[in-house]
Design a protein around this nucleic acid. Structure first.
Lengths: 230, 230
DNA sequence: CGGTATCCCCGTCGATACTG
DNA sequence: CAGTATCGACGGGGATACCG
């Protein structure tokens, strides 16, 4: 790992493992349930594959992650020690949600947002059969303007080009608005009331939408004054 | 801070502030109550003063630390946002105490151990007047072999050379044993029973010692299998 | 899908010295 | 006590290409 701190303190020893760039975010992805290399990549799009590979090896060596190979299927699973990092990730995320000020445009990413949303969709609350939701961010450049969530009976897909299915719901908003709603800063209904989100489609589907589109893990953290600059 | 992650996730935004080397340990020192530059240095002896200065400035800019200058007196205090990092430090330390395997010889440091002990001494439980405890680590080289804790009526001093006062108690042990007791791996009495610690001096003082020499903040964490290698 | 290999730059950090 | 100044190396990590 990084150079040792030369301290016996448990905080120091733990941070020798955790303070390298990307490591905590990788642990976050594992805690959130991603197991495959390319799924981890989707949650960490700015991390190079070689660095992801290196970090995974470090965590395996440390005893935090188990690499389970089953034929062609490779999974990275948290060991019990790794699973117990969940409270650490939660404490960090709760602090961030509570104190970090407004996020910059550089931190908005439609692909990442959709991927996060995908992970939290409440399958039991989705309509039977297949539901296709199109998301439109008119302010973005063409290649990032339209996205599709294909909520099948058994799985959810995120597409950045038209999957060809008939669209059931069209959500039009700004990327910032949807990100903020997802993070729990203002509610879906507030944003709709303010005209910042419009939803087109059958009334039943529109009403049901907030029921299965669960928000971020940290959406319900009680907020502080958001004074921290980062 | 370090390069941005380009993610809106609160974990990512928080780690942009916290994942640089030394930062979490500096926050630990502040959470533990150190306020002066040179006190912070004592808790972070391998950190260069310029880097400490830089990190403090970063934390001040971020809104986590307040630099309060009062004449010649300079103090670094946690803001409310910084104070709320305490649960993060505790989660990290608890995880480390529970899972990190045996610490290496490189992580043992008598000066740091005594400084940590000094901070946790229960002043109300110390004997009235001045008590001088000499600690002996026979296995260390001469310059690190003898230490003195001078527990005055109002303050506690750590000395690495003879303060000249009459010594009330002499504790002889190995640095590793004392560090492990301090961290909660085995008790004072167990170590004494095993002949790994001897205490010489008046019986009343010997009996009282464990009462005012409080252990590490993380000594009472329930331990796991200590399988993590770092 | 699941990674490795390579290359090179730039920034961090460590070391040391020095000052008000 | 409370820091700044300087400087060099080293290696982390970003980018890119490529393989099984």
């Amino acid at each position: 790992m990084g150079t040792a701190y030369g301290q016996f303190c448990p905080v120091a020893k733990a941070m020798e493992l955790l303070d390298e760039r990307w490591t905590m975010l990788l642990v976050r992805e594992l805690v959130m349930g991603s197991e495959h290399f390319n799924d981890l990549r989707r949650g960490l799009p700015r991390m190079s594959p070689s660095l992801l590979s290196k970090r995974l090896q470090q965590l395996v060596r440390a005893g935090i992650v188990e690499k389970r190979v089953d034929g062609t299927d490779v999974r990275y699973l948290l060991t019990p020690a790794g699973e117990e990092l969940r409270p650490v990730v939660e404490a960090v995320g709760a602090w961030g949600a509570r104190w970090i000020g407004e996020i910059g445009d550089r931190d908005l990413d439609p692909k990442l947002l959709l991927w996060d949303m995908r992970r939290n969709i409440v399958e039991e609350a989705t309509p039977p059969g297949r539901t296709v939701v199109e998301l439109r961010f008119p302010e973005l450049r063409a290649s990032q303007r339209r996205w599709w969530l294909v909520i099948g009976p058994d799985e959810v897909d995120v597409c950045d080009d038209d999957p060809g299915h008939e669209v059931d719901l069209v959500v039009t908003t700004s990327l910032r608005t949807l990100t903020q709603v997802w993070m729990g800063l203002g509610t879906w209904d507030q944003a709709r009331g303010a005209g910042q989100i419009t939803v087109d489609g059958p009334a039943a589907l529109r009403r049901a939408l907030p029921g299965w589109l669960a928000l971020s893990t940290f959406a319900h953290v009680e907020r502080g004054p958001h004074v921290v600059r980062v």
